[in-house]
Simulated assay, not measured.
Amino acid sequence: MLKHLKTLPGHQNPVYALANSDDEGIFYSAGNDKGVVEWSLNDMAFVKIKTPVQSSVYALLNYNNQLFIGERSGAFSVFDFAEQKVITRINAHTKPIFNIQVVKGKNELLTTGEDGSVAVWSLKDFTEIYRFQVAYDTVRAIAISPDETEVVFGCKDHLIKIYNLADYSLKQTLESHSLPVTSLAYHPSGKYLLSGSRDAQLNIWDLPNYAVRETIAAHMFTIYDIAFHPTLPYFATCSQDKSIKLWDAENFKLYKILSIEKGGIGHSHSINKILWSNDGKYLISTGDDRQVMVWEMED
């Protein structure tokens, strides 16, 4: 299913964010190093420091030939690939930004983080359109439904808040996790939502009614990320317990565990982020051990 292909060293501090490029075979990583790093999957090697940043990076998002960089300072920068430079840096929040997402149909950018607010920005000129308070503490995760009718937020107070994307009105509050919600992902077809938490549980919420179909004791510690394969019926989860797990997206069968304990190769500390390459050939992982690991999908 998945086998270790390459470990890419170079980061000097923990890494929190990954993003693909529009260019096939290129991806980016960032964390406490105060720089966004460009890597080549074709050469399995470091390419260059793409751009320096002023504080630690907790979120990266590539969209429409631009890379959005969310910082610990509460600011976000926009690196334009056509101009090959940062075209704007906005002091968006008073506390760290943990997540950035795009509402494609509305041409809007969402930022959120430790201050519990969500800011909505125009992708045309990066002016602030709207701001609303989702929680009184950290909002770590955002997921947008595939049909772009709803957006869900994972909160430190263990709640999941669902908002209508048309007007950002609160639609529903979900409560089943016992600790902060740290990861969210919609199935690509929109038939269910996955939520991961510091309670190490993975919840499957049926749609459209958001009823809990199943709760899986997926990891030993916090589930930091959930990533669906771009074309195949699989999803991966990663955790503070230093493992990556590959699951069947139809019946939730566990296919593979990638960890030092299981295979002798893996991360030695918390895994903070995972990312499928655009073509689905590779899974990229990174975390507190400062390593970027590339795993290859086997036939």
Rank of each mutant, 00 (worst) to 15 (best):
K245P: 11
T94D: 01
E83S: 13
I49F: 08
N278C: 12
F126T: 05
K95H: 11
I260A: 13
E38S: 12
S73C: 00
L194S: 09
K106S: 05
P52N: 13
A236Y: 03
M44S: 09
R131N: 03
D22G: 04
V118C: 15
V134L: 01
R72A: 12
G70V: 08
D33W: 03
E83G: 08
Q66Y: 10
G10H: 01
D167I: 00
V53P: 13
V212E: 01
S178A: 15
I204S: 07
D43K: 15
I26N: 00
Y234K: 04
I223A: 08
D248S: 13
N164F: 05
A135Q: 09
V47P: 03
L109W: 08
G280S: 03
E296P: 07
D22T: 07
D248Q: 11
K104R: 15
L232M: 14
V120G: 00
E114F: 13
S195N: 12
V181Q: 10
K50D: 10
H219F: 06
L165T: 00
T149I: 05
D199Y: 10
L174T: 10
P233M: 06
Y58R: 11
T286L: 04
V134S: 00
T127C: 02
F126I: 03
D80C: 00
A249T: 11
D33N: 09
V86S: 01
N13D: 04
K106L: 03
P188R: 12
E71H: 10
K6N: 07
V152K: 00
K50P: 11
A82Y: 10
Y130K: 12
L18K: 02
Y186Q: 08
A75P: 10
G10Q: 00
P146N: 02
I204M: 14
S178V: 15
A92E: 05
L258N: 03
H219L: 07
R89Q: 14
I49K: 07
I160N: 04
A119K: 14
S268G: 08
K262N: 15
D43A: 13
W247P: 05
W39D: 11
A141W: 12
V47E: 13
K262Y: 15
G35S: 15
S178T: 14
R72H: 11
W205P: 07
C155A: 06
K245H: 13
V212S: 10
V212L: 01
H177S: 08
Q101F: 00
F252E: 06
E250A: 12
A249D: 10
F132Y: 10
C155V: 05
L184W: 14
S268T: 13
F235Y: 11
A236H: 02
S145K: 09
K48R: 15
N91W: 00
P9M: 06
A92L: 04
S40E: 03
T222K: 05
D115F: 10
S239P: 06
P146F: 06
S77E: 14
S55H: 10
T111P: 13
E214P: 11
A19S: 08
Y168K: 05
D288Y: 03
I142Y: 07
V37I: 15
D279A: 06
T112W: 12
E214G: 05
E298T: 11
D288Q: 02
V151D: 07
T222R: 02
A17K: 01
D289W: 00
D115T: 14
V36H: 11
V134T: 08
R198C: 13
D137Q: 09
L174V: 12
E38L: 12
P96G: 04
L207I: 06
I265A: 08
Y16F: 07
L193H: 13
